[in-house]
């Protein structure tokens, strides 16, 4: 997981995780109501700025993680550009019909996907799941049954990846890959997915038993090893978003980059 990599702990790490998640979700919903192309372009730039400057990850790693974004951008935009409704035709060839409207609507969608991806990456790169769930228990009163199950589940991710390796090793030892034939692909798929899933279920079950043996019960009020509270950074975080959105709005009105307003088809 990204979260165990060496990183500089910037102020983004110190924000209350529940608050961070809430802000991100609000931003997400907010973006759904933005139909002005220039607004979304500036909004995306703001989000990228935050990611690049304050995620604490080296630029090289960020660049690597962003490669899929470009693919997402292109492919999200392309369907709408090629097949969207519009009146001002730029290009027409068979089923493909590119219009000015569909083009800018496609670009808008691409940027939308980019904002979501950037916000999501910023969150997941700067939040340790354990802190998130401790915070959700303390601030949102999430039932510990769910919180600890999630934490135990996330703990298992590296174990499952290692297990995948071990299953492979075991199959080599046991001579599984010696088998050949037309159905060998199906067989391989099955021989990895079934043990991995059934082993995960068994492991989850045993962990649940072990947790109950350690007196994990939901009735009483529990104490918390990590106390997650609020701090000045939370204020900084909110204020900086208010500022960034305001700036994006101002710039989209006064310094538009692209010559379009609302991208919806009337």
């Amino acid at each position: 997981m990204n979260l165990d990599l060496t990183i500089k702990k910037t102020w983004l790490y110190k924000i209350n995780p529940s608050l961070k998640l809430l802000v991100m979700v609000l931003l997400f919903i907010g973006v759904l109501f933005v139909h002005q192309l220039n607004m979304i372009v500036y909004g995306t730039l703001s989000a990228l700025l935050l990611l690049i400057l304050f995620s604490g990850h080296p630029p090289k790693r960020l660049a690597l993680l962003s490669i899929p974004f470009i693919i997402v951008f292109v492919s999200t935009a392309s369907s709408m550009i090629l097949f969207g409704k519009g009146d001002t035709t730029w290009f027409k060839w068979g089923l493909i019909h590119i219009t000015e409207e569909s083009f800018y609507r496609g670009i808008h969608l691409g940027f939308r996907a980019l904002v979501f991806a950037t916000l999501g990456l910023t969150f997941s790169l700067t939040t340790r799941p354990v802190y998130l769930f401790y915070s959700l228990m303390q601030q949102v009163k999430l039932n510990p049954k769910y919180a600890y199950s999630f934490m135990a589940g996330f703990r298992l991710i590296p174990i499952m990846i290692e297990e995948f390796q071990t299953i492979r090793n075991a199959m080599v030892v046991r001579g599984v890959q010696q088998q050949k034939g037309i159905r060998s692909f199906y067989f391989k798929l099955k021989s990895y997915s079934i043990p991995l899933l059934s082993q995960s279920i068994r492991r989850a079950h045993r962990i649940a038993v072990a947790m109950e043996a350690k007196r994990f019960s939901e009735v009483k009020k529990r104490t918390f090893y990590y106390k997650i509270g609020f701090s000045g950074y939370d204020v900084v975080f909110i204020v900086s978003w208010v500022f960034l959105i305001g700036a994006a709005y101002y710039l989209s009105l006064n310094v538009p980059i692209l010559p379009t307003g609302d991208v919806r088809y009337e």
Binding site: Y146, L156, I201, R203, A204, H205, I207, A208, F216
Partner: peptide
């Protein structure tokens, strides 16, 4: 749901979460 149910559900789902992640590209 009992703790066992929740934990098993979540762990299975996380396995699929990994699949989902690989499915994106």
């Amino acid at each position: 749901l009992k703790l066992t149910d929740v934990l098993v559900t979540i762990v299975i789902s996380i396995v699929f979460g990994i699949v989902y992640k690989l499915w994106g590209p």
